[in-house]
């Protein structure tokens, strides 16, 4: 699904060149659930931007779903983002003045899908994340966990080749984060390929494979023998009511 060979990324910061990534080789098969971990500055965000076609690599090669992505034009990259990739951000990045439904519809609008089909698929996606009843709510009327579930629905809706989640639980309390992980695990069991960036090992242990980055290099590739099951944890350790209420910070969500 994802094949990265000798990937390098160099930034020009004033007169200095900053090597953000060097000699990264990484292969992710369809249906894998991979966590990318590492301290800040390790290059994991740069990797996510490159995998998400938001940035262009300096050297090496990146194949997504059998297509060589490096060397694509802006418009082609936009199409890849639209059809092959679903983003889930730490800061949610929903458009604040639109309903959950309309937010989920956005990627389909850019894909040119007819309104009726769009509505059907948006409702379906919201149903999958358990928010069908909230589809006409705006982000400001939803909790942090619910907002992140809407953005997962948005990421799913064009049936992407891969879901890229950048610290999806970073702005959430433990219980909401666990719920998000439960949704990801369910999606993964349904066949979705997911790449998740996190700096919490606890979160990483929910996946089947963890790759570690340090100073722009891939330093370790670990298989998780017995991944944590988020649904089980929710049922066992955090029964509803004991969870530390929803943190409604003034966090930007769009």
């Amino acid at each position: 699904m994802i094949k990265v060979i000798n990937l390098g990324k160099v930034y020009q910061a004033g007169t200095q060149q900053v090597v953000a990534l060097a000699d990264v080789n990484l292969s992710i098969r369809p249906g894998e659930f991979v966590a990318v971990m590492g301290p800040s500055g390790s290059g994991k965000s740069t990797l996510m931007n490159l995998l998400g076609c938001l940035d262009t690599l300096t050297s090496g090669s990146y194949q997504l779903d059998g297509m060589e992505v490096s060397g694509m034009s802006d418009t082609e990259q936009a199409q890849v983002r639209n059809l092959k990739i679903g983003f889930v951000f730490q800061a949610f990045n929903l458009l604040p003045r639109m309903t959950a439904m309309r937010n989920v519809e956005l990627p389909m609008i850019y894909a040119g899908i007819a309104p009726r089909e769009r509505a059907r698929r948006a409702v379906q996606a919201l149903e999958r994340v358990g928010l069908k009843e909230r589809m006409s709510h705006r982000p400001s009327e939803l909790s942090g966990g619910q907002i992140q579930r809407v953005s997962i629905a948005r990421a799913l809706v064009n049936n992407p080749a891969v879901i890229l989640a950048d610290e999806p639980t970073g702005n959430l309390d433990t219980r909401s984060g666990e719920e998000i992980m439960a949704i990801f695990q369910e999606l993964n069991r349904g066949g979705a390929t997911i790449v998740l960036v996190t700096h919490e090992r606890e979160i990483g242990l929910h996946t089947a494979r963890i790759v570690y980055f340090r100073d722009g290099r891939l330093v370790d590739d670990e298989n998780v023998s017995a991944p944590l099951d988020a649904r089980e944890l929710l049922n066992a350790n955090m029964p509803a009511g004991q969870s530390p209420g929803i943190i409604e910070s003034g966090e930007e969500c769009g």
Binding site: N93, L95, Y110
Partner: peptide, 16 residues
């Protein structure tokens, strides 16, 4: 700007 970034991430081309 943020909205534009989001739209681009979701697949809006520069022309869009």
């Amino acid at each position: 700007t943020r909205e534009i970034g989001i739209r681009m991430a979701l697949g809006a081309t520069r022309r869009d």
